[in-house]
Simulated scan of single mutants.
Amino acid sequence: MTDATSATTKKRPVYTNIHVTQIVGYRLPPAGIVSILHRISGLLMFFLLPFVVWMFDNSLTSEISYESFTSAYLGGIGFVPAWFVKLATLGLIWGYLHHFIAGVRHLWMDATHSVTKEQGRISAIVTLVLSLALTVLLGAKLFGLY
């Protein structure tokens, strides 16, 4: 390499022994954010599985149990207020929607094998926007805005 080209090329930083305070300033690309949120949403759905089973059981057992199921969204469950039940349901809605959309994105990328960096970035942004928009729409229905 000549002196002229080495002077114009920018030296890349070398990171060794990265400390936690240095990680905080790091910006993940949208694909990295979607990947991490995909794992978080899967974990959220796993931990809220008993709540889902309870909702399913109470909604299908009988008319009386269905009434108690719907009253949980109006009056709460025991010491848990109704807004918290709705918030847990909203978290479950987001978890399912994001996990499903991000899963379809991953399956599409695996099936086509022709994903560029730009396509990955755009599909990650579409995944984030679509999952959040559908969550807001269903959350508005859940909280009685329409």
Rank of each mutant, 00 (worst) to 15 (best):
T2H: 06
D3R: 03
A4V: 12
T5M: 10
K10Q: 07
P13C: 04
P13Q: 05
T16I: 12
I18V: 15
H19Y: 13
H19N: 15
V20N: 11
V20M: 14
Q22F: 11
I23L: 15
V24F: 14
G25Y: 03
P30D: 01
G32Y: 02
I33V: 10
L37V: 06
R39I: 15
S41V: 09
G42L: 09
L48H: 03
L49Y: 12
P50W: 04
F51Y: 09
V53G: 14
W54G: 09
F56D: 12
F56R: 11
N58P: 05
T61W: 09
S65E: 12
Y66K: 03
S68M: 11
S68K: 11
F69V: 00
T70R: 08
A72F: 10
A72H: 06
L74N: 07
G76I: 12
P81S: 10
A82P: 04
F84H: 13
K86M: 11
L92R: 04
L92G: 13
W94F: 13
H98P: 01
H99G: 08
H99T: 09
F100R: 03
R105F: 05
H106K: 11
L107Y: 10
D110T: 09
A111L: 08
A111C: 01
T112V: 01
T112Q: 00
H113R: 07
K117Q: 13
E118R: 10
Q119A: 14
I122L: 10
I125Y: 01
T127I: 05
L128A: 07
L130D: 02
L134M: 07
L134V: 02
L138C: 03
K141I: 06
L142T: 00
L142E: 00
